[in-house]
């Protein structure tokens, strides 16, 4: 598989996520789109990890080159989990107060 395929796949997913963030008004779905963006990143990271690892392993079979990318993916998941906790808490709080999850419903703060 050429690495470029993964690159473009990842970019496509990322852009779909971005488009979703922009196009949707439901806070939950916006949030999910952000998660999609993160996953696009993860996918690309793993692909690069594989790429660099393959190059290194050709010289030294025990090489750990590329592992750091997978570690980062792991951390991204950790962060995503924490973010989800906080984010959902905020969204729920908002829902409790205004009974809506429309992100544009709250626009007292402007100008």
């Amino acid at each position: 598989m050429p690495i470029n395929h993964y690159l473009f796949l990842s970019l496509a997913l990322f852009s779909i996520g971005v488009a979703g963030v922009l196009a949707r008004r439901n806070a939950l779905i916006v949030f999910m789109c952000i998660e999609l963006m993160l996953n696009a990143v993860n996918l690309l990271l793993v692909a690069f990890s594989r790429m660099h690892n393959a190059a290194a392993v050709a010289l030294d079979p025990a090489s750990t080159v590329g592992a750091e990318a997978q570690i980062l993916v792991f951390f991204i998941m950790v962060v995503a989990a924490a973010e989800v906790t906080v984010g959902l808490a905020i969204i729920v709080m908002m829902y409790r107060n205004i009974h809506s999850v429309d992100i544009n419903f709250l626009n007292r703060l402007k100008h």
Binding site: F31, M37, V41, L45
Partner: peptide, 25 residues
């Protein structure tokens, strides 16, 4: 107002995290 601030901050912050991660990648 606090609600709104938090939601805006959170959504935009998370979005920018995504952007940053793509850059890092």
């Amino acid at each position: 107002r606090s609600n709104e601030a938090a939601l805006k901050y959170f959504l935009m912050g998370a979005f920018s995290t995504g952007v940053m991660l793509m850059g890092v990648t």
